[in-house]
């Protein structure tokens, strides 16, 4: 895994991934919506040992996705993609205004599925590659506090299950990443308690899972057990909980 595309490269988790990949001397392609920010990240990763290109375009315009891959392919072959963009959204607003929910779906879910689709075909054709995308523990069970976000992440997770099933015989690996709370701009408004992991730690787990060909990663590890318990709670009890 040396030639890697980071989608949503300005996200805190993607930047942490980028730094660890740079230390390995990786060749990186950064995708994002803001050319300024991408250039800041690119310069940093170059100093840290990576060779880096950037491409800024509008993620919410899905027609632009295949063209971005074409431009990347002109620079050479790619071994892996990490889909990292996302937004937490305003649950309360989405409850009242479906237009807001639709926008969350567009960015968080449909955009991701569009990227997954084109990379599935690209890697399938190549007969190798790793596709990783960041879902969330929030996708494991719908909860009143963030079920719109949770639904976008659940869709990614189910979609990837199918992709994994489809691409396994073709030598393409599919990794679903389910972080718990990570201390990033997305969660800056939440209390920075004991459950908050550092992006560095999460990135380390992600690379280890990608290197070893794992299918589903909970990071940090204890979220696997927390979510197991949460999924096991019978619906008749769950409806009474304020989660």
């Amino acid at each position: 895994m040396k030639n890697i595309i980071l989608i949503g490269a300005t996200s805190a988790i993607a930047q942490a991934l980028g730094r660890q990949l740079a230390a390995r001397g990786a060749r990186l392609m950064l995708w994002g919506r803001s050319a300024d920010k991408l250039e800041i990240v690119a310069a940093d990763l170059r100093v840290r040992g990576a060779s880096v290109d950037c491409d800024a375009f509008d993620f919410d315009n899905f027609a632009a996705h295949p063209a971005a891959l074409e431009r990347a392919r002109k620079l050479g072959d790619w071994d892996a993609v990490f889909v990292c963009h996302g937004s937490l959204g305003d649950q309360k607003l989405c409850e009242q205004d479906f237009a807001a929910a639709e926008k969350e779906f567009r960015t968080n879910c449909l955009g991701a599925l569009s990227f997954l689709t084109i990379f599935a075909n690209y890697f399938e054709g190549q007969g190798r590659g790793t596709i990783a995308a960041i879902g969330s523990v929030a996708g494991d069970r719908g909860r009143q506090s963030n079920y719109v976000y949770g639904t976008t992440k659940a869709a990614i997770s189910t979609f990837m299950q199918g992709l994994r099933n489809r691409l396994h015989p073709k030598g393409v690996r599919v990794l679903t990443i389910k972080p718990g709370f990570v201390s990033t701009p997305m969660t800056a408004h939440l209390k920075q308690g004991l459950l908050m992991a550092k992006p560095d730690k999460v990135a380390k787990d992600i690379l280890k899972a990608a290197d070893s060909g794992k299918a589903v990663l909970y990071t940090p590890w204890f979220w696997r057990w927390i979510m197991l318990i949460i999924r096991l709670i019978p619906e008749s009890i769950f409806v009474r909980l304020k989660l």
Binding site: D36, I40, A188, H189, K191, Q192
Partner: peptide, 28 residues
């Protein structure tokens, strides 16, 4: 955004309450 996690100095004295607005990008 306001972070509810209070910020202190190393000596943890004096106590202070402030609104916290993390900076994200130097170009902003």
């Amino acid at each position: 955004m306001t972070s509810p996690t209070p910020l202190q100095s190393w000596g943890r004295y004096p106590a202070a309450q402030q609104t916290v607005r993390p900076l994200h990008w130097r170009t902003e």
